[in-house]
Design a protein around this nucleic acid. Sequence first.
DNA 1: GTGGTCTAGACCACT
DNA 2: GTGGTCTAGACCACC
Lengths: 137, 137, 137, 137
Amino acid sequence: MWLRIDPRQAKPLYLQVVDGVKEAVAKEALKAGDRLPSVRELAATMTLNPNTVAKAYQELEREGVIEVIRGRGTFVAKPGARPHKEEQLNAMKEMMKQVWVEAQHLGLSTPDFLELIRAWTAEWDGAKGRESRGSSH
Amino acid sequence: MWLRIDPRQAKPLYLQVVDGVKEAVAKEALKAGDRLPSVRELAATMTLNPNTVAKAYQELEREGVIEVIRGRGTFVAKPGARPHKEEQLNAMKEMMKQVWVEAQHLGLSTPDFLELIRAWTAEWDGAKGRESRGSSH
Amino acid sequence: MWLRIDPRQAKPLYLQVVDGVKEAVAKEALKAGDRLPSVRELAATMTLNPNTVAKAYQELEREGVIEVIRGRGTFVAKPGARPHKEEQLNAMKEMMKQVWVEAQHLGLSTPDFLELIRAWTAEWDGAKGRESRGSSH
Amino acid sequence: MWLRIDPRQAKPLYLQVVDGVKEAVAKEALKAGDRLPSVRELAATMTLNPNTVAKAYQELEREGVIEVIRGRGTFVAKPGARPHKEEQLNAMKEMMKQVWVEAQHLGLSTPDFLELIRAWTAEWDGAKGRESRGSSH
DNA sequence: GTGGTCTAGACCACT
DNA sequence: GTGGTCTAGACCACC
């Protein structure tokens, strides 16, 4: 399964679902057109409240990651046509700044920092397609 | 002032203070040994409740960013001797993964992604010392 | 009840809660997976302010003694995987040194001192499981 | 010098002085009849406020560790004749219980725990007389 | 003056 | 229902 939920984490459950789906798509464990489990199915297999899953799906749809077709199911959307590009770039920069601040406090030099990121992205890129059983977290 | 608080953001106020101080230290707008405003002062200038500031300062002390000297005030700690290095590296990787996932969804290629980060870090590194005004957030 | 709070003691109330819970876990009056009273419940039964209990619970979570599951409650964590082992051993040694200093001032010989500790630990070990009533404080 | 003060520690400065003197006496770096520095001297060499040192000396006198002879100075008291024996034994047991609780949380077995204490006391006993330049803390 | 603790009471997000 | 955050205002120990 391309999703792992841990109720002990501080991150809200619905957000874990959102980020988990997005990660699966990024790692190509889920591809455009793939069908997602129904709200009820996912809730059952992950032992979540259906409301929690529904909220996650709503958020994913709002971000343009998935498409809900009434009566047919839920599908991974085609890339492109993502709304809010501007917003998301800003959010990304903000998150990136936080990462950078942490790196400074850990005493990482800029070259070491960039090299670390290069290695990590290589790892994640390498995981593409290979069913997303990821080393991290 | 090296701190900007926005009560409309979703991020809790005390966390904005924590991250703001850490960013100021990373950008060297605050240096080891510098005295921070007292809890009451900062609360007044930022129009926050003193308890909110106190909570932020306690968190910063736990992370080893600042040192509290009873009855005398709060000071930026010397770098090095930061506890929890392992955990913080893991947290950093987790955050970085999220950034990477977002980048994938924005359709950024890995080289473009790395170049973007390189440019951002150059910008932040360049801000060091220059009293941290501008560009961010 | 496995907790006794005395507002006349010098020790802060929230710390009494923290230490009380840790003692209950050590004496196995609380076991891994057991649910703790909710913040409001404990506050009511102990006639404390909910904020005080919340602060204690947060500290216990930071120390890895309990786990908070959002919207569901608070539970005793599994042992092992306790963070900060090193620091805690140092803190233990420091406290132990204080005990030893006191013993010297009371004129206890080292063998007498060790025998006293042996007896006390036997007493506390013996209390395990037996619902933690008695002897203490 | 048999005293080390660190204003960054959470422990109040006057208590650091109290405990430092008691430790020096326990380790026989200070012996009965030895003259202590005057309040002003100690305050100057330790860069403390004289009020802080005075408070510490008062507490030490209350506990029967030192004797102040007006016009002559302050001296380490003879052992025996310590007041509050009962109290102090209780306090010791309470502190010891805390140490034991921490040990339980670190997963130490009772024999390991006792052995650890035996080793530590041997170390401190061994330091007696040798000018108290101690490994710990 | 400093930070630390505590109470009271409110609002919110999450499940 | 749960815990998390925030405000307001008080008291205290320490320096």
